[in-house]
Amino acid sequence: GVRVRALYDYDGQEQDELSFKAGDELTKLGEEDEQGWCRGRLDSGQLGLYPANYVEAI
């Protein structure tokens, strides 16, 4: 996976979405899909989806 850092807070709206705060680091686990979602893993171990444009590569 690729380490990325959140640029903005994001509150997951669905069960399969991650929630994070600006500045949090997570691991991107795949390329974004056509809707702009990426699969990732928080350092807590939680897996889920997040909007790709909310993070930057570290």
Rank of each mutant, 00 (worst) to 15 (best):
G1I: 14
V4Y: 14
V4G: 03
V4F: 14
R5T: 15
R5K: 12
R5Q: 09
R5V: 10
R5D: 01
A6P: 00
A6H: 00
D11N: 14
G12T: 07
G12R: 08
G12Y: 01
Q13Y: 10
E14F: 09
E14L: 13
Q15K: 10
E17D: 05
L18F: 15
L18V: 04
S19H: 07
S19G: 05
S19V: 06
S19K: 06
F20S: 00
F20C: 01
F20W: 00
K21N: 05
K21W: 04
A22R: 12
A22Q: 15
D24E: 15
D24G: 05
D24R: 03
E25G: 07
E25I: 10
E25A: 11
E25M: 12
L26G: 01
L26Y: 00
T27A: 07
K28N: 12
K28S: 13
L29K: 04
L29D: 04
L29V: 14
E31V: 12
E31D: 06
E32F: 04
E32M: 12
E32N: 02
E34S: 13
E34A: 14
Q35M: 14
Q35P: 09
G36W: 01
G36Q: 06
G36A: 04
G36Y: 04
W37D: 05
W37S: 08
C38P: 02
C38R: 01
R39S: 12
R39V: 08
G40H: 05
R41N: 02
L42S: 11
L42T: 13
L42P: 01
D43T: 05
D43Y: 04
D43F: 06
S44E: 08
S44H: 05
G45S: 03
Q46V: 11
Q46E: 09
Q46D: 08
Q46G: 08
Q46N: 09
Q46H: 13
Q46L: 09
L47N: 14
L47D: 15
L47Q: 15
G48H: 00
G48W: 00
G48T: 00
L49Q: 15
L49T: 15
Y50K: 02
Y50F: 13
P51N: 05
P51S: 07
P51Y: 03
P51F: 04
N53F: 15
N53L: 15
Y54D: 02
V55K: 01
V55D: 02
E56A: 07
A57L: 13
A57S: 14
I58C: 07
